[in-house]
Amino acid sequence: MSGNRFFAKGTRAWQGFALAVLLCLFVGRFGFAQATGEVPQARPVGDPAIEARALKLGHELRCLVCQNQSIAESNAELAHDLMNQVREQLAAGKSEEEVRAYLVARYGDFVLYQPPLKASTVALWVGPFVLVLAGVLALWRALRRRAREGTPTLSADEAARAEALLRGTNEGERS
């Protein structure tokens, strides 16, 4: 039974711990940056903090002339112009919400990949959750009904046949 000793009950805690340590190690490895060297440093495009915010916002805004891409992904001329607008406005101290409002005022809700909650989009936002609730409810009722009706019983003959069938086929199954 040497195979089983490893899986003894007390070891479960350290399995979890070992996993956590391993995870931290992997993550920790990448957490720090190095000192810079003698090679000349390249300049970041714009202010990295603004850039990060602009990209995040840009990914939520739809490019109007593309098939279906955000302005952050698209190479289209207009997408570049709009990205620059986003950058400039964020740099000028505007909030994400203000920049969104600026674009919606000009291009409409179409530019938002996250449609705002309005009368016309209620079904969109609550629909999935209504589906789940309805599904769970229907399942619950079906199971209750099933339990009330009870199991159909097999005739003696059927049971014997099924038994014969299973003996030959189900030896490996236990789950």
Binding site: L64, V65, L78, D81, L82, R106, Y107
Partner: peptide
């Protein structure tokens, strides 16, 4: 020249 006014008008083409 820079398309700023066009953006104000919501021009996309």
């Amino acid at each position: 020249l820079d398309g700023r006014v066009a953006i104000d008008y919501g021009v996309y083409g």
